[in-house]
């Protein structure tokens, strides 16, 4: 998996999603690959931010991206739902396949993509609207106007995000901004859930929160894993160790371009990493 040398990007091809993949040890259940990246490089103008990353994410699992600041984890995460499109001068090479479809294809509808691949940001960013309107925002934009259906959807989404009990009494009266930081972040998760995604990207979702709120978010992620594929960027290695199934370690090359050092089951990465760089980072000798 170590791929530091830049080499020509091969022709894009779909990954065979029908082939069942057996998870390494524990379960023998068949699972499929949800997302695969192939030789993804991301440039900001002339500068290479991420170089040649290929990895696969299994459905209904949590992948954690760890590594020092500037190693391109967040940038890489943002190419899954093409949020990099919004940055002037950013360009992506290679393929990112969601169930075999390359999302980088210019014909792909980014709107449809972002409905299927939701995102939770580092800083909780609820809209300055009521809690209800925050959660109903996505569905409304897809034309759902039926009051009963919306109410139902808002309720299930808030329940899944473990926020319902705390806010059910003033859904419409209270602004999303009036909640505590941890509640705001769970509201943002509920907001994503309401759009019914398959994949949820989380960009350091707990870095702005207190320890208690952080633990709640982690618990929530473990639960959501049963239905969703989650990719999380985190600076907190304990967090990666606690919640993720698979961990990918990124670092920076000499030219400050981020690259993938290794990826593997979280247990193995934290106990027996193959690469020296990974070991140094995990044991705190680097970064």
């Amino acid at each position: 998996m170590l791929a530091t040398a830049p080499h020509p990007v091969p022709s894009v091809r779909a990954i065979d999603v029908t082939a069942p993949v057996v998870r390494d040890e524990a379960s023998a259940a068949t699972i499929s690959i949800k997302i695969a990246t192939e030789h993804v490089s991301i440039m900001y103008g002339e500068k290479v931010a991420v170089r040649d990353v290929s990895l696969q994410v299994q459905a209904r699992s949590i992948l954690a991206l760890i590594g020092p600041s500037g190693s391109g984890k967040s940038t890489f995460l943002r190419c899954f739902n093409r949020m990099n499109d919004l940055i002037p001068g950013a360009s992506v090479q290679g393929a990112v396949c969601l169930e075999g479809e390359n999302v980088m294809d210019p014909e792909v509808s980014v709107v449809e993509l972002r409905r299927r691949v939701g995102m939770v940001f580092q800083r909780p960013n609820p809209f300055p609207m009521s809690i209800f309107e925050n959660v109903a925002y996505g569905p409304r934009r897809r034309g759902m106007n039926d009051r009963r259906k919306l109410e139902e959807l808002v309720e299930t989404s808030l329940k899944r995000a473990a926020l319902w009990d705390e806010v059910k009494d003033d859904l419409r009266r209270k602004s999303g901004l009036a909640l505590s930081g941890g509640q705001q972040q769970r509201l943002c998760i509920a907001r994503v859930l309401a759009t019914d995604p398959e994949v949820i990207l989380m960009d350091e979702p707990a870095s702005a929160l207190d320890p208690v709120s952080t633990l709640r978010i982690e618990e929530l992620m473990r639960e959501l894993r049963q239905a969703y594929t989650i990719v999380i960027v985190t600076h907190n290695m304990q967090q990666a160790a606690r919640v993720s199934d698979v961990t990918a370690f990124f670092t920076m090359a000499e030219d400050r371009a981020g690259y993938l050092v290794e990826v593997g089951p979280t247990g193995r990465i934290f106990t027996r990493p193959t690469e020296r760089l990974t070991e140094d980072y995990i044991s705190g000798r680097f970064g």
């Binding site: 409905r115 940001f121 609820p126 996505g138 934009r141 994503v192 759009t195």
Partner: peptide, 20 residues
């Protein structure tokens, strides 16, 4: 941030402008 949040939820650009 507000624009990103809306776009990440799959709202179109115009919906983001109009509603956020």
């Amino acid at each position: 941030d507000e624009r990103s949040a809306s776009l990440a939820l799959g709202a179109t650009k115009w919906q983001t402008i109009r509603h956020v």
